[in-house]
Amino acid sequence: MGSDLTKYLRVEKLPHIWCAGCGHGIVTQAIVRAIDELGLDPAKVTIVSGIGCSSRAPGYMNFDTLHTTHGRAIAFATGVKLARPELKVIVITGDGDAAAIGGNHLIHAARRNIDLTVVCYNNSIYGMTSGQYSPVTPLGSFASTAPYGMVERPFDLCELVMGAGGTFVARSTTYHARHLTNVIKQAIQHKGFSFVDALSQCPTYFGRRNNMKDALAMLNWYKENAVSRDDWAKMPPAERGSKFPIGVFRDEEAPEYCETYRKVIEKAMEEVGAK
């Protein structure tokens, strides 16, 4: 057992709104545990979210917390971080929030390499509005707005963020809870833009429509289909099927935006003789 995590939670705000079997509590716990294990000062952590099931998490977390508009969490977080660069700013978002309505903010924050940690609670469905398809719903899956099966090709969010220049990119699942905590820890410690694709089961709106009757079935599916990054690389494409890689896909150093802008301020102040 680790330390008591309830001090990081607003226990008086419980019970949470999530359905029985939802994976979001596991991801939330992984974030809180990561903060605990890193020994961060809770007064210097700000958690920002958008709209959706995932985005209710900050309300239960005992930090400065900001529950914003749909898709815009990363943009709000950019303002917080630039105003107080000494804060650890963690964004909690969902796959619809981050990749559909908020996709533009995701790629641009990655491009800037601003020091935010984005944890995407990825259940591949719009849960809050009861099960419409998202940009990561797998081809052929069923959703309330894909009654004949999903016909749009999905995003691989890790590839997307890497393509946009994100300097730390990782994936894990709620089945691999310890691994998930570890990659979130690494993401928080990383200086620059970090992104964790945290696969999280939605038995209510995704599982039941897609032959996985409960949370256990979905966790088993993660267990059977997740392969480590290195094994994935060695795996012949023909054998990959429904399998997917987990692990840290990128961990690189690059100039961080707030630090770079700090130099702009120093230069400008020097030019006008304000220093």
């Binding site: 943009a75 303002g79 971080k81 903010h105 102040m269």
Partner: peptide
């Protein structure tokens, strides 16, 4: 930046308004 402040050109109008809210909440 001459007065120690921060300017950012955001990716769109929506993000600009969002960043303004975030910065104001941070003081």
């Amino acid at each position: 930046p001459q007065v120690g402040g921060t300017f950012i050109q955001m990716e769109d109008e929506i993000a600009s308004m969002a960043a303004v809210c975030g910065a104001s909440l941070a003081g």
